[in-house]
Simulated assay, not measured.
Amino acid sequence: MRILTRLETARALDPVSDKLQDAVFAAPVPDGVRDLLHGTWLGHPLHPVLVQAPVGAFISAAVLDVLPGTRRAATALVAVGTAGAVPAMAAGLADWSQMTRDRRRVGLVHAAANLVAVGLYAGSLVARLRGRHTRGRALGFAGLSVAGLGAYLGGHLAYAQSGGANQAAPEIARIPEEWTVAGSLASLPDRKPAVRTVGDVAVLFYRDGDTVSAMIERCGHETAPLGEGDVIGEGPDACVVCPWHGSTFRLRDGAVRHGPAASDQPILPVRVQNGNVEVRQP
C-alpha cells in the first residue's frame, strides 16, 4: 500500500501524463466516437466490459498451454486476446484522459504494464506461428504475469481511487428520507438552474413553468458544480452542461447525453406542496 500511495503522489510522472493527455485531446476523434469509448450509451464505462475478452482469452490460453494437444487452440486464443486488447486500451485511454492527476499517475503505470503484456503476447503469437511453441508459451506466461500487475493497478484505480465511479451517487444517502422543503416555487427562476441545499447536500433545481426537476448538483464524473454550467435546449429536452469536462445531462431525468460521464446524474423525487418545493430520497 505504501508503494501505491507513492505512486498516487509521484509528480515525476506528470510531464509524461500531461503530454499524453494533450495528445488524446488533440486526436481528431469525433464526439460520437468518444462517447462510444466512454460508455455513455451503456450506462457505465465501456473499458471494464471490453477487457473481459483479452483477459478471458489469455487465461484460457494459459490453461491450454499446460495440456497436451492444444497448441492450435492456444494459439487462436492468444490471437483473439491480442486483437481484443486494442479496443479495450482505446476505451481505457479515453477514460484516463479525463481523470484527476492522482488517478492518471496510477493509470499511466497500469497502461504501461498492459502495453508490455500485450507486447509479450504479440511476441508469443509470432513464436507460435513460426512453430516455436516452447518460446511462445514462455512469452505467454510472462505476459499473463505482467497483465496481472496491470489488473491489480486497475483494481486500485477503480476501487480505492473511485476512477470511473459515479461520484454523485453517495450524495443520495445524505438526502433526508422524508419530504423536505427546499424553498418556495416562486423563488426558483424560470428555465434557469438554481442551487439549493437540502440537508447538507447541494441540489440543482430546474423550473419550467410549474414543473420542477431536481438532481444532485455535483457532477457524477469529477464532482464539478453543475449549477455553474450552461443550459442548452428547452422544454423536456433541456440539458445542463458540466463546466469542467462538458458532460451533458438532461434536466428532467438526469440522463447523460454526452460524455465523458458514462452514467446518469442522480435525480430526486420532487413535489410542490402549498407553494413550496419539496424533495426526498428516491
Rank of each mutant, 00 (worst) to 15 (best):
residue 266 P to Q: 02
residue 152 Y to R: 07
residue 125 L to D: 11
residue 74 A to E: 15
residue 15 P to Y: 10
residue 193 P to Y: 01
residue 238 A to V: 10
residue 131 G to Y: 08
residue 114 N to F: 04
residue 88 A to D: 07
residue 111 A to C: 05
residue 141 F to E: 00
residue 210 D to A: 14
residue 258 H to G: 00
residue 2 R to M: 05
residue 246 G to C: 05
residue 176 P to M: 02
residue 30 P to D: 08
residue 206 Y to I: 05
residue 214 A to W: 08
residue 166 N to Y: 01
residue 3 I to P: 00
residue 50 L to G: 03
residue 84 G to T: 07
residue 57 A to R: 11
residue 94 A to W: 02
residue 264 D to G: 13
residue 217 E to I: 09
residue 10 A to E: 06
residue 89 M to V: 14
residue 207 R to D: 09
residue 16 V to M: 14
residue 209 G to Q: 09
residue 198 V to M: 05
residue 72 R to L: 08
residue 247 S to A: 13
residue 146 V to N: 04
residue 8 E to N: 03
residue 11 R to N: 10
residue 151 A to Q: 09
residue 267 I to S: 13
residue 184 S to W: 10
residue 100 T to L: 14
residue 243 P to S: 14
residue 189 P to G: 09
residue 108 L to W: 05
residue 121 Y to A: 05
residue 209 G to S: 08
residue 78 V to N: 13
residue 4 L to E: 03
residue 258 H to E: 14
residue 214 A to T: 09
residue 23 A to L: 15
residue 138 A to M: 06
residue 66 V to Y: 12
residue 159 Y to E: 02
residue 254 G to Q: 05
residue 220 G to T: 03
residue 129 L to I: 03
residue 42 L to A: 11
residue 280 R to Q: 11
residue 35 D to R: 08
residue 153 L to Y: 01
residue 138 A to L: 13
residue 256 V to L: 03
residue 87 P to W: 04
residue 41 W to H: 10
residue 249 F to V: 03
residue 188 L to D: 01
residue 230 D to L: 11
residue 38 H to E: 06
residue 266 P to A: 02
residue 150 G to K: 01
residue 54 P to L: 04
residue 258 H to W: 11
residue 221 H to N: 07
residue 103 R to E: 13
residue 259 G to V: 02
residue 93 L to A: 15
residue 261 A to L: 04
residue 76 A to L: 11
residue 282 P to H: 05
residue 73 A to K: 06
residue 110 H to K: 02
residue 155 G to M: 08
residue 178 E to V: 13
residue 148 G to V: 04
residue 38 H to V: 01
residue 90 A to D: 01
residue 221 H to A: 05
residue 4 L to Q: 07
residue 36 L to R: 01
residue 95 D to Q: 04
residue 251 L to F: 15
residue 215 M to H: 10
residue 182 A to Y: 01
residue 68 P to S: 09
residue 178 E to S: 13
residue 256 V to H: 10
residue 74 A to S: 15
residue 167 Q to I: 03
residue 64 L to F: 14
residue 210 D to E: 15
residue 268 L to P: 00
residue 106 V to T: 09
residue 16 V to T: 15
residue 153 L to F: 03
residue 177 E to R: 15
residue 101 R to C: 02
residue 278 E to Y: 07
residue 195 V to K: 04
residue 179 W to N: 04
residue 114 N to L: 07
residue 233 G to V: 09
residue 181 V to Q: 08
residue 182 A to F: 04
residue 104 R to I: 11
residue 156 H to P: 00
residue 97 S to W: 04
residue 282 P to D: 07
residue 35 D to G: 05
residue 112 A to M: 14
residue 238 A to K: 08
residue 233 G to R: 12
residue 262 A to Y: 05
residue 270 V to M: 10
residue 156 H to E: 14
residue 57 A to G: 13
residue 279 V to C: 09
residue 80 V to Y: 07
residue 182 A to K: 00
residue 204 L to K: 07
residue 215 M to G: 13
residue 35 D to H: 11
residue 102 D to A: 12
residue 181 V to T: 15
residue 47 H to Q: 11
residue 213 S to G: 12
residue 197 T to I: 10
residue 59 I to W: 01
residue 85 A to K: 07
residue 16 V to F: 14
residue 154 G to Q: 10
residue 179 W to D: 02
residue 58 F to W: 15
residue 163 G to F: 02
residue 116 V to P: 13
residue 208 D to F: 07
residue 206 Y to K: 03
residue 234 E to S: 15
residue 281 Q to H: 13
residue 131 G to S: 06
